[in-house]
């Protein structure tokens, strides 16, 4: 792993305390060109994390707070008639940013959600019949309240599939919380952070992810994981090929973060939960984290016969 990335990770973890694993996963997700979904209760530091990441990677950062009365144009932008030039002129929406924080994405109506998710997938926006590419790199960090909360429109599975990873931050540990409480506001910290890595450098590292070697044995392991998710009957629906590709890409990024140019089964096992938990549903209706653990334990790492 390049030293700049490790410095960036250190910098972020000085703001978001005690969440090293999640920070690394978030960075890996970025390196793998994936979008990140953070699911947590309000006030757990989701926004702080996104803000800090944007700062240290010196990304152009926008934040949209999703509400139920929001329209697609509020995200994508709108053409306005300019009486002076007698022409329509585009007002770019917040989506034209390098890092978009879509706060509480499940509060918006499905229509608005759809507009965002389409932009995420296509990495371009079509307005008035003209396609406009989004900036490079382009990340979306969406946060979501647990669906049990009132007044939300839960994202359907098909759209959840667009997010490479889903993580949750969770409550801090006692000592972290003590440090948190005795220190100053974390968001202020975040806004004063210095960039540790240029976006060009980030792009370079992203290019390296594709070059991380996945051996035949490893790909075989990934395939057996996917096959088991479909054949075992543990899950309502098995993992899609896109999930498989995502899993491999995330594992590559994780390997790169660990400073290796090849993927090991450990990498796959670490990212398996974040990459697959939001895409599958246990047939018993239990928690999805448990079911990914079941999947992991059911598949041997090395072929036995």
């Amino acid at each position: 792993m390049s030293t700049t990335i490790s410095r960036a990770i250190t910098a972020v973890s000085s703001v978001v305390l005690g969440k090293d694993e999640q920070i690394r996963l978030a960075v890996a997700c970025m390196l793998a060109r994936g979008h990140l979904l953070i699911e947590d209760l309000p006030g757990m530091g989701k926004t702080t994390l996104a803000h800090a990441l944007a700062r240290v990677f010196s990304l152009d950062y926008r934040r949209v707070q999703f509400t139920s009365d929001m329209l697609p144009a509020d995200i994508l932008g709108v053409s306005i008639y300019d009486p002076d030039t007698r022409q329509f002129q585009l007002r770019q929406g917040p989506v034209f940013a390098q890092l978009l924080l879509a706060d509480e994405v499940n509060r918006a109506t499905p229509k608005t959600q759809g507009a965002l998710l389409e932009a995420m997938e296509e990495r371009q926006v079509t307005l008035d019949g003209v396609s406009r590419p989004l900036p490079e790199p382009f990340f979306v960090i969406a946060t979501q309240n647990p669906v049990t909360q009132a007044g939300t429109f839960p994202l359907p599975e098909s759209q959840l599939d667009r997010f490479l990873m889903r993580i949750s931050l969770g409550y801090p540990s006692a000592e972290t919380e003590l440090a948190l409480l005795s220190g100053s506001d974390r968001r202020d910290h975040a806004s004063t952070m210095k960039p540790e890595i240029s976006s060009a450098e980030l792009m370079q590292q992203m290019a390296l992810v594709g070059k991380v070697h996945a051996s035949a044995d490893l790909i075989d392991y990934v395939q057996r994981l996917l096959a088991h998710s479909r054949d075992s009957g543990l899950f309502v629906v098995g993992l899609s090929p896109r999930a498989g590709l995502g899993l491999l890409r995330a594992a590559r990024a994780w390997a790169l973060l660990a400073g290796r140019d090849y993927v090991t089964p450990e990498d796959v096992q670490v990212v398996l939960g974040p990459v697959t938990a939001h895409r599958i549903q246990a047939s018993t209706g239990g928690a999805s984290a448990t079911s990914t653990q079941q999947l992991l334990e059911a598949v041997p790492v090395v072929r036995r016969s």
């Binding site: 090991t264 450990e266 096992q269 790492v301």
Partner: peptide
């Protein structure tokens, strides 16, 4: 040992 354990 369980089969899902990695070498490490």
């Amino acid at each position: 040992l369980a089969p899902h354990l990695t070498t490490a």
